[in-house]
Amino acid sequence: METLKQNWLDFFQSDRKEDNWWERKRGLYRDRKAEMVRISGEGHLFEKLRCSGQTTFRYLLHLSFLIKQHDLFFKEEQVMPFQFRLENGKLVEHKVMERPFQTEEIAGIEAESLRGLTEKRFSYDRRSAVQYAERWWNSYNPSYRKFDVDCTNYVSQCMRAGGAPMRGAPDRGSGWWYQDETWSYSWAVAHSLRWYLSGSTSGLKGKEMESARDLIPGDVICYDFEGDGKWDHNTIVVAKDADGMPLVNAHTDNSRNRYWSYEDSTAWTPEIGYKFFRIGE
């Protein structure tokens, strides 16, 4: 572990595959005319396996990037699960461990569940939503359940902190709500939240925007990594970079001030699809 801490840059560059997440991340910064001024990190070991002269370590790596873009400095943070393998004391393999996505086949919120609802607006406190996102980006509010795939649960909590009203309980397929260790599909399942935001006409709803540039802090981005119509991930916008593009916070692979496009994700594919939602309109 100490060897890895000494030089993060050499460690990442040791795997030069064309589709390596680190190369994509470096390319993303180049495209934004941004510079990594400093990289620091800390690993937290959670599993150690020994077999036939080999030792495998699995750990969470908390990375911090000091970024300069034009005259603006900001700090990006990301927590990723890594695995490395030693053979006779020599590093022979390292890789990012891929997180699982939710496997529930949820079709989303059916149009019938929205009938009969009257138009009702609410005042969305974006500052409170962002403050919550910053407070809990790398930890978990004990008032809510923690999920193995926690991205949508986290974004829902942020919107709730911003005053988004819950409705629909106890029908899990209706509305958007969390109550007594039970929740709607739209609260915790990425695919369902995406369809709820675009279909709701009362309380919490989303107005689809044309591009990421149109978003402001407190808004939400949905991701279909493979472009197959199944929505896999959600993030919340917490800031804008020097070019006016969104920076987001997220759970599962916990991230703070991450560039919105997720091109540096191990789940990214060229077929990725996005939906951009203005919350509260």
Rank of each mutant, 00 (worst) to 15 (best):
S186D: 01
Y223V: 01
D264N: 12
N153E: 02
V37C: 10
S156I: 01
D19E: 10
Q13H: 10
E210F: 13
A169N: 00
R172N: 01
A169T: 00
T55I: 07
K95E: 11
G53T: 06
E105W: 12
E76G: 04
H251S: 05
E23I: 14
R167F: 10
R115I: 03
T103K: 13
S143E: 12
D15G: 04
S123M: 09
K275G: 03
N138R: 06
F65H: 13
S139I: 02
S265Y: 08
Q6T: 04
T3F: 15
N20W: 11
Q157T: 03
D228H: 07
S14T: 04
A107H: 12
E23R: 15
T3H: 14
F12M: 13
A190W: 04
K95W: 08
N7H: 07
E18M: 09
A161N: 02
I39T: 10
Q102W: 06
N20I: 00
D228E: 07
R160A: 13
K95S: 11
N88L: 12
I272A: 15
R16N: 13
F74L: 07
S186Y: 00
V237N: 06
L66T: 11
D10C: 09
I67S: 04
V155C: 04
A188K: 05
Y29W: 15
W183H: 00
M166K: 04
A164Y: 05
A190M: 07
L117R: 12
E226W: 12
E110N: 10
Y124S: 00
R58V: 06
F73V: 08
A190Y: 09
E87R: 13
A188F: 09
R278I: 01
R160N: 02
K205E: 07
M1D: 09
S128T: 10
E119S: 15
F84V: 05
C158T: 02
Q157E: 03
F276Y: 11
C158R: 05
M1P: 01
L28E: 12
K120I: 05
Y262G: 04
T118A: 12
S200R: 01
K48Y: 09
G43H: 08
G27Q: 10
R213F: 13
K120P: 00
L61T: 03
